[in-house]
Each structure stands twice: as C-alpha cells, then as structure tokens.
C-alpha cells in the first residue's frame, strides 16, 4: 500500500520544471499526480510516476537532486465530509501529516498523504475499511 513518490529539489531558476518534465517524457515515464511546494529560495516537486526507480536514475543523470519518499494514496467518495472521516482516523491514531495533495474526478477523490508513519497510517485506515491505492492500481 506504500507508494514511492518521486521528490525533486528545484532551484528557483527558469526552465528547471520544464527540464524535469521533458526528461521524464523522454524516458517514457508518466506522471499521475504532482504538487509543487515553493519557498523564496527553492521549490520541491513531488510526483507520482509510473516508474519511480528509472525516474530517479534519469533525473540524477541530469544533475537533479532527487529522492524517493514513502506516501500513501487514499481513495474516498467525492462527497461532502468524506475526507474528514479519514483524517479523523489518522488524528485519533496520533499520526501527523507532513503534506498532502488531492484530485477528484467524477465520483472518486484521491489523496496523496505524506506522514512519517506510513505503515501505521495504512493499518489504521484499513481497520476502518478505508480504500487505499496500491502503486499498481494507479492507472497510467
């Protein structure tokens, strides 16, 4: 249930993000979800990709600072209050979230969650019959 997310450190210079997406494209690596965190000095790109290990390799070759981060991907109904139920479970288990990003299409919403305790989060959410995606489930 734990998914390897690709994280890329980006200096705030023009064209760096373009280079990342071009490099991944050239290696036939698809992106399913991503978020970009920015500070005044740098940005961090977090991406769910079809082949995390190859992505790391080809970006490293291009001189990028990259790493893989464990995340989980939760699926909830696209209805009011659905996400809050899942978050309640995590907070009841004292699992804190570092960051998350989400997208909703039609009836379902997917939420990528980063926590220091991924295993524990998976266990807690599954206990409560929450739906989690496996890496293979993510349709590329």
């Amino acid at each position: 249930m734990i998914i390897k997310q690709l994280s890329v450190f980006l200096e705030n210079t023009a064209g760096r993000l373009t280079e990342v997406s071009e490099t991944l494209g050239a290696h036939n690596i698809n992106m399913s979800a991503f978020s970009l965190a920015d500070t005044s000095e740098y940005g961090i790109l977090r991406v769910i990709v079809s082949d995390p290990l190859s992505a790391v390799e080809c970006l490293k070759e291009k001189g990028f600072s990259v790493s893989l981060t464990d995340v989980i991907c939760l699926v909830v109904p696209h209805t009011p209050g659905a996400l809050s139920k899942a978050l309640r479970i995590l907070s009841d288990h004292e699992i804190s979230i570092e960051y998350m990003y989400a997208f909703a299409v039609n009836e379902r919403a997917s939420v990528v969650i980063r926590t220091d305790e991924a295993e524990k989060a998976v266990e807690a959410l599954q206990q409560h019959k929450m739906e989690l995606m496996k890496a293979d489930d993510i349709v590329f």
Binding site: Q5, S7, F9, A37, Y42, E98, R114
Partner: peptide, 16 residues
C-alpha cells in the same frame, strides 16, 4: 550547500 541523495528531505520544514 548542495542538497543531495540521502540528505535530501522533501519536507520544507526539515530543509528549513
């Protein structure tokens, strides 16, 4: 200073 490999955390809080 370069952030690299095992030293690179993707959490801004940790980088800061």
């Amino acid at each position: 200073v370069e952030v690299e490999g095992e030293y690179f955390s993707d959490e801004i809080r940790k980088l800061e």
